[in-house]
Design a protein around this nucleic acid. Structure first.
Lengths: 255, 255
DNA sequence: CGGATCGTTGAATGTATTCAAAGTAGGTGG
DNA sequence: CCACCTACTTTGAATACATTCAACGATCCG
């Protein structure tokens, strides 16, 4: 249970969500202020810590300020499936807004800082700022399409293509907040995690990464992973970047 | 190219979208009217016809009034992946709202009637009716969770469980608009379609359906499929109904 | 009746899993 | 600082589930 503080973040510091949304659409001062005001106090999580357990009650969503998380489920059969990863600037756990109990487990992959947004606050934000409602709707749609891409890769591609697609997607998403061209990043996931995200066993993930490295597709150095020939991977998988741009021309004018 | 008519549907006939949303939340007259007004003229599609091609320009979404559709993609490798099915009352192709070009292909599975909603109209609707914005957001979240369930079944379950999960999901969704308890329905899909939805080949779908029938899990008669022991299938797969209820207690009051 | 699409079946093949075990790295406490 | 523990990575061999290829049967429709 978190209590709401009179201020939600250090004065003058914009939340990662505001920054990310600004990336797609210049926000008015009033819109930015409303987004900041909706967010609760910041909380630290250490790597591996669960922010929320599937089946537990929820009355808020979360904003990732720093670090990575993932959402996962544990079907009665089949171990675990990681559904998506959450990066700085993400509004996390949209799925749980439809129910009183969380459908997924949220786990910190690295050390994180998150804020919560109560559902009621989000409802008020959507009602008061129609343009933000539309933008959040579009961002959620883009994330749904990114999940559809993973569904496609798991349903129709082999292990190398699945892994390549996931790496490209992470890279694309990190570029939105990192800015500039990035060709390598720290992957705070174990091979077990990767397997659970890709519908593979950790053993097969290992062999697959090894093969990709041998083929010169990627280079590894500890947790650091570098994409050697991005264009080749894109051609190989048909990857489409779902994060770089979001259409905003259909949005109503700001209020 | 569709032209907008002065009236969107026969007088006195509520669109399937209005009916479905009313199922989750009693709408005010003004809300219902706004939803009706946003919809364009109705259009008929015959089974197999494409409503929209991936890569083509789009400036509207669609409302299914009657019949089934599905959205699919064709990765450069791997044939086709069916991402989701769309039933009467669905607001279809949310994913394309984030871009100027359609990321998926929409195909009529049976004969259909659809209306379109231009993105601009949707934007205006969201801005004018904050409660509808929230409700549509929640419905989209529920659909995203249903897709996550399929991701899980493809990633972590065997063929029988995948098929069982899909059948249970269709049944659950049909119950929202059909009303009453249904234990059988007409499945207008070929085994190739099922395979493309489940990440299996048509051959394996065939063997799997056959085995389910032999085991007494389902009964088939032409296109008609009957679920013999629903509770057993649910226990077997861990299926959760994502369509029956949507939390609405967090929504702001109607305007 | 002919053609096309869909469903069914068998045999060979292949990709990924399972099981088992050894190697490696990072952190903790003595 | 080293010993130890734990979690993670790597490797091999046997197995399993699903695919591929090929063909035939059934059904629908013009």
């Amino acid at each position: 249970m978190t209590c709401r503080m009179p201020f939600s973040s250090p004065a003058g510091t914009r939340s990662a969500l505001t920054i990310r949304l600004s990336h797609y659409l210049p926000l008015t001062a009033s819109e930015a202020a409303a987004i900041e005001a909706a967010q609760g106090p910041r909380r630290k999580l250490i790597a591996g810590e669960a922010l929320l357990d599937a089946g537990g009650p929820v009355d808020s969503l979360f904003v990732v300020q720093q670090g990575w998380l993932h959402s996962s489920v544990r079907p009665p059969v089949g171990g675990r499936q990681i559904l998506s990863f959450h990066y700085p600037g993400d509004l996390v756990d949209n799925s749980s807004i439809a129910w009183a109990r969380a459908p997924t487990t949220l786990t910190a992959v690295s050390d994180c800082i998150v804020s919560d947004i109560s559902k009621k606050q989000l409802g008020a934000l959507l009602a008061q700022h129609g343009r933000i409602a539309g933008l959040l709707y579009a961002v959620a749609a883009a994330e749904a399409m990114a999940m559809a891409d993973r569904l496609t890769s798991i349903g129709r591609m082999n292990a190398i293509q699945r892994l390549a697609t996931l790496i490209l997607d992470m890279l694309a998403r990190l570029r939105v907040t990192a800015g500039g061209v990035v060709d390598s990043f720290d992957l705070p996931l174990t091979q077990t995690d990767l397997g659970d995200a890709l519908g593979l066993t950790k053993v097969h993930v290992n062999r697959t990464m090894r093969e990709m490295e041998e083929r010169g597709m990627i280079a590894r150095n500890g947790r650091r992973i570098r994409i050697c020939d991005e264009a080749a991977l894109v051609g190989f998988t048909g990857f489409v970047d779902r994060h770089a741009t979001i259409a905003t021309d259909w949005l109503p004018p700001p209020r």
